[in-house]
Amino acid sequence: MIGVTLACLVAVLLGTGAYLLMQRSPIRLVLGLGLLSHGINLLLFGTGALKRGLPPIVLDKASFTGDISAFVDPLPQALILTAIVISFGITAFMIALLNRRNSLLTADGATPPERQDDPLALQQPAVCQPIPDDYEWLEEVPRQETGSARAWN
């Protein structure tokens, strides 16, 4: 029973995550990635045996006589822990990247069109202002550098 519940939960999380990834809003992208990684973590969790009340801890190794295979397998939990750390780091980086992008987007593209997708074109300082609806976030934004104040440091 608990296996079926877990499988349904994984399916819902993965489905919702995939749906959110299809949206054009960056915040939904981040949320979708988060849900996807949670779904995968639960899937990993399900690969260990799902038993209650059997932590894989033996207090006194010398006098232990039971069956080791009755315990819950601790390895998937170690894997999940690693995966959580990795997905947390990447989500933080993603949010920083989207924040950076929002601060770079400007309402008026003042760059000459022929230099738009040239990564080494001359840059000119531009006024920064967030645009109200940045649904076209996958399109090339106008090439603008925001002056030395925003230099990476």
Binding site: I40, L44, L97, E140
Partner: peptide
């Protein structure tokens, strides 16, 4: 941190992250 880099970076991060998730699964 140029705009094209940030845009390319978002694409790169998202698509690689999805492949990594399939890997983990």
């Amino acid at each position: 941190g140029r705009p094209a880099q940030v845009n390319g970076g978002i694409r790169y991060v998202v698509l690689n992250l999805m492949a990594s998730m399939v890997f983990l699964a």
